[in-house]
């Protein structure tokens, strides 16, 4: 019994230690932001790696999610004779929820896991130690540009996901199922609110971008420097990021749309 309690205590202390290290790392990363100003090349390179290379998976996924929304929405709305509001349903679902959330889950899977593996391998191959011994702070030089790149890329990727999703819904609803073209866009324009829907969705994607990139960088930096350690860290990145996105989505939704 006492042993079990001691074990529980050790696990708790371990988790708190990791949480503390994670926050200290975030502080170090944020302190490095001013260093990026004279070196925009570092940021641009990472935006390409983290953001641009994620465009394909985000675009294709957005298109398909929008097409499925168009299909499912049409069958439900047509039962009430409300198929003309399909545009509103597709756009609201995407901009408020699916855009930020699914884009963040895809971002964690593609860019987050890549970031963790890259940083973890840099640690395992002593590249981070090498930088330290060259009097270069690896947090400022390696982690900060990647963090800012994730922070900037995520909202843009979520916007792209939503935009292509709307096009997918339009293609299925208007192109295949015969919903009126003008009604699709006019209803959407009338009912989607810039502040209530678009702005709140953007806030979500900013928060998800910050959290996913932070988790990915911390897991890589804190990885045990072996092949098994990097593999576990990469898995943890995807699991922790996904859970964090879904949990935070509930909290943010309750704060934004709850009465």
């Amino acid at each position: 019994m006492l042993n079990a309690l001691a074990q529980l205590g050790r696990v708790g202390i371990g988790m708190l230690e990791r949480l503390g290290r994670g926050h200290l790392l975030l502080l170090g990363i944020l302190r490095g932001l001013p260093d990026l100003l004279p070196r925009p090349g570092l940021l641009i390179k990472q935006i390409y790696s983290v953001g641009v290379l994620s465009i394909l998976i985000i675009s294709v996924s957005g298109l398909f999610v929008g097409m499925v929304l168009g299909l499912q929405g049409y069958y439900i709305l047509s039962q009430f004779g409300a198929e003309q509001t399909l545009g509103v349903m597709v756009a609201a679902s995407l901009v408020r929820e699916l855009g930020p959330v699914v884009a963040a889950l895809l971002f964690a899977g593609r860019a987050g896991s890549a970031l963790t593996a890259e940083i973890g391998l840099m640690k395992a191959t002593e590249q981070l130690s090498g930088l330290e011994m060259m009097a270069v702070d690896p947090i400022r030089r390696v982690l900060t540009p990647r963090f800012l790149a994730g922070f900037i890329s995520m909202p843009l990727l979520a916007a792209l996901f939503s935009a292509l999703g709307v096009l997918g819904g339009y293609f299925v609803g208007v192109g295949l199922l015969g919903v009126d073209d003008g009604a699709f866009w006019a209803q959407m324009q009338a009912k989607i609110d810039l502040h209530e829907d678009v702005f709140n969705g953007a806030i979500k994607s900013v928060v998800f971008g910050l959290v996913c990139t932070w988790i990915a960088l911390f897991q890589g930096f804190d990885a045990v420097p072996t092949s098994e350690g990097v593999s576990r860290a990469t898995t943890r990145t995807v699991v922790h990021s996904s859970l964090a996105v879904l949990g935070l989505d509930f909290i943010l939704t309750a704060l934004m749309f709850g009465d």
Partner: peptide, 15 residues
């Protein structure tokens, strides 16, 4: 550290 060089076992070159 700018006055100390270190050669790591793996080389530790930036890949």
């Amino acid at each position: 550290r700018m006055r100390m060089g270190m050669l790591f076992q793996s080389g530790a070159l930036l890949t």
